[in-house]
Design a protein around this nucleic acid. Structure first.
Lengths: 290, 290
DNA sequence: GGATAATGTAGTAATTTTATAAAAATAATG
DNA sequence: CATTATTTTTATAAAATTACTACATTATCC
């Protein structure tokens, strides 16, 4: 059931391109034939490719082995993956003269990429701990400022359904007041992109000194992370480009999803009927599905 | 520089998943063997796969042909592409007895999958149109209720930086009032998961009757979509499972990102310095990076 | 119980790989 | 500078693997 990320990083096509100079005459002919039309190459038989490159079949076979494939069929599969993976713009930044289709695609792909990265780096143990804290909470407060305000609001909306008292604040002053009045049994979830907002760090300290459980959804290498009871690390990707959106926001939201799901699961079956009831109650406000 | 989107539409793995029920006993065994570990399947020979599925070789061959491949090798290549294209774990639902690591992974993957699906279905032309509307707007209002409230808030936060007057409302009453007072030149962006919220539909109608431009980020096949000036269609995946989070929310956010980026790009270079200035102004509130 | 669909067996055809030999290229020696 | 030895490269042909087809058998549904 584990991951199947074997080939994510071996971009065969790029490899072929870069090793072109270090190949001998015949093998270069093969490389060129493949590069001429890579996707056609995946449909060729070894004989057909040999003909297209004007070399013999064993040469093609040797060529494949040279790229650490076990043979021609294996090579073809790696090539096919490389073509598909070779999504044009992963990690490419949005350029000023991109068409709408281009930059829309880039944004989507970079969001997907950072989600995938987060998936690999999120610590399930920390998640489990946090879920336990949340279940035992007498009261939950989600704090997020600036860009994280909407994440906090979303979290409130989600956890509201668990009939635990839950609030969210996007205002430093209010947050500070709540932190000051916090008690043992209260859980405060601080959502921060950088983990360097001075206010947030101070609020965390105040809350902890009052005995509250402070959970950080933030950069694990940050001042904020250091003063939390538990941290869910979301490494902040450098936001180099001005017009590159912060996909961390989306990772944060997904983390909220995971927490909410975890709480639901741990609450057990009878709790599901409660959720269903809430859902039903919304039906009256909707147009029916034809 | 053109794209190589050849495979975008034949997502073999998804196909296999969805056709699972319509297969007969032996062919389903093959399908299950493949889905159990798709990337391993690309390395199997027909004999090996037949063994893994406990069927005969011709059955595997027939299975491949059933998915309109010319034969087993062709099928393997299509499978390899499908894996690389993404969506490796198709539609696995969270189960009550999943471990934290398991359901966290499932949520991440299903989010990724739906983003990828959205990427393929989003219409660049519609995006372009909407971006044009937004640039010309005298005033922008983002409306989202319930789960979409946080999306509206996020949008407000993003567009605030463009020094266009921008607001967001999560309250039906306020939305109705704003819609009633809307004028030509105002843009109202309605964010709705289902597109069936009665209130939202009525608000859209009121706003349009006043001459406002009404943009829907919603299900394209919905009452709301029908009464908008322009629609960005985000097909709502069935939220069958109670504890499956709504990934549509995340798609909506990404759409907001795209719109914001589009506006930034169209505004041109001098505008970038304005954005930088805003960013600089936040520095004082932060702890420096070591 | 007969007809139809589904599956497997066994043989055939295809493709790929290996072993080996020829050719070309390079280096070395007289 | 020619000639031979050595190495590298390439191709031919045979062996092995792999995939496919025709047909027989079994299961399934009227």
């Amino acid at each position: 059931m584990a991951a199947n990320h074997a080939h994510r990083d071996d971009n065969l096509l790029e490899d072929i391109q870069s090793r072109l100079d270090s190949l001998n005459k015949s093998e270069r002919k093969v490389a060129e034939a493949i590069l001429r039309d890579p996707s056609a190459a995946t449909r060729y038989s070894i004989a057909a490719l040999a003909r297209a490159a004007d070399v013999s079949e064993p040469t093609v076979n040797r060529f494949c082995r040279g790229f650490s494939a076990t043979g021609f069929p294996d090579f073809k599969i790696r090539l096919a993956q490389s073509i598909a993976t070779g999504t044009p713009y992963v990690g490419q930044n949005v350029e000023p003269d991109d068409t709408v289709a281009e930059f829309a695609d880039k944004i989507m792909l970079s969001t997907i990429a950072s989600l995938d990265k987060a998936r690999q780096s999120l610590d399930p143990k920390a998640l489990g701990t946090v879920i336990d804290y949340l279940i035992q909470a007498k009261q939950i407060n989600f704090f997020g400022m600036g860009g994280s305000a909407s994440v906090a609001l979303d979290a409130q909306h989600k956890f509201f359904r668990f009939n635990i008292p839950v609030t969210s604040y996007d205002d430093a002053l209010m947050q500070r007041m709540v932190a000051a009045g916090a008690q043992v049994g209260d859980v405060i979830v601080l959502i921060s992109y950088t983990g360097r907002t001075k206010e947030a760090v101070e609020i965390a300290k105040v809350a902890r000194s009052n005995g509250a459980t402070v959970i950080g959804i933030t950069n694990p290498e940050s001042p904020l992370a250091e003063c939390c009871t538990a941290v869910l690390g979301v490494t902040a990707p450098e936001d180099t480009e001005v017009y590159m959106p912060m996909s961390s926001r989306i990772i944060h939201l997904t983390v909220i999803d995971i927490l909410a799901t975890g709480v639901t699961l741990k609450r057990g079956k009878d709790f599901l009927s409660h959720l269903k009831k809430i859902k039903e109650s919304l039906k009256a406000t909707r147009y029916p599905l034809e």
